[in-house]
Write a protein that binds this DNA or RNA. Structure first.
Lengths: 145, 145
DNA sequence: GGAAAATGACTGACGACATCGACCAGATCC
DNA sequence: GGATCTGGTCGATGTCGTCAGTCATTTTCC
């Protein structure tokens, strides 16, 4: 389904998604039309979901990053989910099993802003906030083998 | 520092990092050499950290995704951090304030594998695992304005 | 078992693109 | 007020992506 060559292409694009077809062709030993065709198929099958860019939030003044665990008050689950989606400073959110219904990542410019945003949620849910001090593992792929 | 045109370029690349310079030029109203120069500077300043690709882990058999909170036993903090980095199935990890020292994302193919991996950590740390049921907010950028 | 069809690759030609140098306009600074 | 720096355009040149046509290999089906 995804063979060795696909994996070469995928990891090459993980490193630098702007690589030319020709460069990918050299890496994989194929011709560039073949590479184009393989990428097309990987996209079609949903293996490659998006070509994107990693931006440093600090450059936009987001000095603080927090992981927030969110436990909606009775009957507020739907509304909490909508709120999280509506607050643009939440940059990721997972709905999980266990006592905490949601675990979300929040980027803010200041403690004051953190407080303001969490107050909005605290009428609907209990929250538990952990400030990110360091990121020992940056986003990476699990082993493909 | 980063003006409107930079933001147009950045969000265009967020959507599709393989867009040609020419396409970016049309979007921004600049010429393609100017766009190239702006991208060069954004990379240099660390605003654009990487051009990358989003892959669907399910396509590699990773059916389960978990958020693991990790509290090292006394004296094991360093070793826990090393272990997390060494286990490739941990695809993200933040070191945070509060009782839980680390919050990490784990991709596994089965419950059995989840158990095996967590057992490795449980000699060094207490863990608390939440299985991801749904992702209401997919990774996105905080507002740039 | 063998013919037909489908798959996945290559090549070569052509149009689109990136890149480079030369040049220009406006802000900044002695 | 002229020198300089910044950030832009334009046009030429070489590289790249894409398309059509071809071919070998594998799969399917009678």
């Amino acid at each position: 389904m995804t063979d060795d060559i696909d994996q070469i292409l995928i990891s090459a694009l993980m490193e630098d998604s702007r690589r030319s077809l020709k460069a990918l062709a050299n890496l994989s030993g194929l011709s560039s039309p073949s590479v184009a065709e393989r990428l097309r198929r990987l996209e079609e099958r949903g293996v490659l979901r998006a070509y994107t860019v990693e931006v440093d939030p600090k450059c936009f003044g987001y000095q603080l990053q927090a992981i927030v665990r969110i436990r909606p008050l009775p009957g507020q689950l739907q509304e909490v989910e909508r709120q999280i989606q509506a607050i643009a400073e939440f940059t990721e959110c997972d709905k999980v099993t266990g006592e905490d219904c949601f675990i979300a990542r929040l980027h803010v410019r200041s403690m004051e802003q953190l407080d303001t945003l969490l107050d909005k949620l605290n009428v609907l849910a209990e929250t538990n906030t952990a400030i990110v001090k360091k990121t020992p593992v940056k986003r990476r792929l699990p082993p493909m083998a």
